[in-house]
Write a protein that binds this DNA or RNA. Structure first.
Length: 450
RNA sequence: GGCGUGGUGGCCGAGUGGUUUAAGGCAGCGGUCUUGAAAACCGCCGAACCUGAAAGGGUUCCGUGAGUUCGAAUCUCACCUACGCCGCCA
């Protein structure tokens, strides 16, 4: 078991609106000199070592140069401090100081050059470190998605799957999906829900939020859908995944790909009290994804779209309790699937299939008989201190003690479009109508979609 | 959008070019006193980085960045942000 308290790689902007190389918490870059082997092993477990090994070597070299620049720079700064202090003393005594001023000017030139060298090295190290994914926990299987592990399953896919139509057919026939007009007004991958379809969205939102707030104790938040660069960097979407996001040029703002971003950045640059932890939040928001590079994949229906709704869960915990909290958070997502009577399975993702910022992830998959696939409807992750470092979120274990980075977790509970696809396909009846699960009936006011 | 005023450590707050090495207070921690507590008094008390086996030494940080200067919390410019007034607006 690895030390979860102060391990993960990272780097970190602390400015509210910007991310400049000169303003980083650098100390965990020590991993580059102290624990290079651990970093290498982490990348190997993700099957990324071939790709990232040269980057690690380069980063280590730059880090050495950064430190030597700092050492020289600080010696020169100390020299300058002595000179300027003496200038002050001579002035006070009414004496000339032209020689000291000349010397000071010379030292100033040296300092300027060293500062430039330091900030170049720092920016370069930073850029490389930003490309390194989180280290996964030891219990995460090595390898790619072939090594994913099915942990448990709930319910059973219906036996008559071959008779089931895909959700887009049933949805359009019942008039609750209008894919053609969605494409007309915005583009392919933008959905119009109509009539009972729109009411289904609203009902799912209320049902999920009610369960998480009332039964599971999450604080509900209504958050901005547009966030700044520092927030996107804090949770790890930037700089590596810039192409996946919609960007507003004039203001340099981004449309959120998930409400994990605003919820996790709520406490950016803050120090929480240990007694406040764990903190649990949920939010309903649309999520925007460009899906660049996914052209031609799952183009029909609701499986891969540019805008979808989601209820997200986010937790802030101590390093000691984050794994327990992951199990809890995952179970909270499962509750929704059980209430919706959708058969699902829980996968522990292998290291190579685990997301960039995550240390351990469970995926929840629902079987959709119409398209004949398991659909990923939730991804529940513990990010260890990867995001906390980037976003500078700490907690004080006890009064008077040093602040430590906390752990963040998040999970979808759940993503709507695939859930709607699953509901339509799983609930299909012989006459083409769709049965509504009991827990949802009061939210949408009927027991059958027809 | 226009004009104006602010942004200083966990909090409040002084500070307009050179012992600021950031005053003072509150909170916190330790101690003296006390049967105990309170009060009073004394001491400690920000973050990060570099160096070092350690002890220690050094550097940076006053919203952010860029300038001016031998020297910037302090002067200049831009930006962010909060508040006030005016304009516009659901």
């Amino acid at each position: 078991m690895c030390d979860r308290s102060s391990t993960e790689i990272a780097a970190f902007s602390r400015s509210p609106t910007d991310c400049r190389p000169s303003d980083f918490l650098m100390h965990d870059i020590r991993l580059l000199r102290d624990q290079l082997d651990r970093l290498r092993d982490g990348m190997r477990r993700r099957k990324k070592l071939g790709e990232l090994a040269p980057l690690l070597d380069r980063a280590e070299e730059l880090e050495r140069d950064r430190r030597s620049a700092i050492t020289e720079l600080e010696a020169q700064q100390a020299q300058r401090n002595r000179l300027t202090q003496e200038v002050g003393e001579r002035r006070k005594a009414g004496l000339e100081a032209t020689d000291l001023i000349a010397a000071g000017r010379a030292v100033g030139d040296v300092i300027a050059a060293l500062e430039h060298r330091k900030s170049s090295a720092e920016a370069a190290v930073q850029a490389l470190v930003y490309e390194l994914p989180n280290l996964t926990f030891d219990e995460v299987p090595e390898g790619g998605d072939e090594a994913n592990r099915i942990m448990r399953a709930w319910g059973a896919p219906r036996p008559d799957g071959s008779l089931i139509k895909p959700h887009w057919e049933i949805g359009e026939r019942l008039g609750l999906l209008d894919l053609t007009r969605g494409a007309k007004i915005s583009g392919s991958g933008f959905i119009v829900y109509r009539g009972i379809g729109a009411r289904l969205v609203r009902g799912l939102m209320n049902m999920m939020l009610d369960i998480h707030t009332v039964e599971h104790g999450y604080e509900e938040c209504s958050v901005p859908l547009v966030v700044n660069r520092a927030s996107m960097t804090g949770t790890g979407q930037l700089p590596k995944f810039a192409d996946d996001m919609y960007h507003i040029n004039e203001e340099d703002l981004f449309l959120i790909p998930t409400s994990e971003v605003p919820l996790t950045n709520l406490y950016r640059d803050e120090i929480l009290d240990a007694t406040e932890l764990p903190k649990s939040f949920c939010a309903f928001t649309p999520c925007f994804r460009r899906e660049a590079g996914a052209a031609g994949k799952d183009t029909r229906g609701l499986l891969r779209v540019h805008e979808f709704d989601k209820v997200e869960l986010v937790k802030y915990t101590t390093p000691e309790s984050s794994l327990t909290e992951l199990e809890l958070l995952t179970s909270h997502a499962e509750v929704i699937l059980q209430r919706l009577e959708l058969p699902y399975r829980v996968l522990l993702l292998a290291a190579g299939d685990t997301g960039f910022a995550s240390a351990k992830t469970y995926d929840l998959e629902v079987f959709a008989p119409g398209v004949g696939k398991w659909l990923e409807v939730s991804s529940c992750s513990v990010m260890s201190d990867f995001q906390a470092r980037r976003a500078n979120i700490r907690y004080r274990p006890a009064p008077g003690e040093k602040p430590r980075f906390l752990h963040t977790l998040n999970g979808s509970a759940l993503a709507f479009s695939r859930i709607i696809a699953s509901l339509l396909e799983h609930g299909q009846q012989a006459d083409g109508s769709v049965r509504v699960p009991e827990a949802l009936q009061s939210y949408i006011g009927c027991s059958t979609l027809r």
